[in-house]
Amino acid sequence: MSQVVLVTGISGRFGRLLTRHLHRTHTVLGIDRRPFPEAPRDVTLYRDDIRSRKTEDVFRTHRIDTVIHLNVMHNPREMGEGAHRFNLVGTRQILEHCERYHVQKLIVLSTANLYGAGPDTQRYLAEDAPLLGGSRSALGRDLVELDMLCSAFFWQHPEVETAILRPVHIVGTVLNGPSNYLRLPRLPVLWGFDPLLQLIHEEDVCAAVLAAMTPGARGVFNVAGPPSVPLTEVVRRTGKPRVVVPHLLWGPLMKRMFSAGLWSFPADQLDHLRYSCMVDDSRVRRELRFTPAYDLDATLEPFRGGPPGAASRRS
């Protein structure tokens, strides 16, 4: 009898990727509002909101061993009541179900952006560093609260093995800020700023999630890929032209363009083009024996050169 894994937010790009890795060895259940047309046959998909009653039915009718909680909106176009409720209420419900239906393992995909990039951000932040990334936007505050909610759950319910992963900028087919940025035909950089960046390939994040599924893995883990490198070096390696913009003009303009749907790079991640925010991933390397398989060039491979505009239209 294989383990039963419930993936929330299975229809997202990362959920699909993870499913491809999981479904041969595990019984995979999925919950998502969005469709997952090319889902493998052995995956049972429930098209529901994680806040709905039906979600509890999924927990009630299956003996779920592991929950992988991916259903968090990281870059909604308009930040309003909707995203706030979805993220926080949804996560709270999932936590309650995990407790009530004796789930053994809970894995939450948080993000290392929560530490926040600022002029005096300390270097190589460990897992116990304060989460200051929420001070700029409502979404940031929500994501910090979400992470805290899960951390509190980790302490309050030792019977559920909880692992919270905080990966650095995930790049690949996913539709998040960093990937959308790298898909732009010309990469904008801020005039006079060149922060160090940590990127991680989505396949490596998958590997980290799988590593976190091993029994005994619990706690908060920063997950990072190849060593940190300056933004201009990343841009150089993609082979794309770079556009230098003064940040005073850049910020307000980008926010407008993003909310109007003209621009795919979320404005609240602008600070990451200006200041460094790097994490110390020694814990995940030591305790989960995780080592990223993709080096920087392999990580950036999908974004290399190409005809301008061809890739960015996807988002």
């Binding site: 002029p119 005096d120 801020l190 005039w191 006079g192 700023f193 060149d194 003064p246 940040h247 200041y275």
Partner: peptide, 12 residues
Amino acid sequence: ERWVPTLPHASV
């Protein structure tokens, strides 16, 4: 000082 990284070019 903490404000030096907020200055363009000086920060780099």
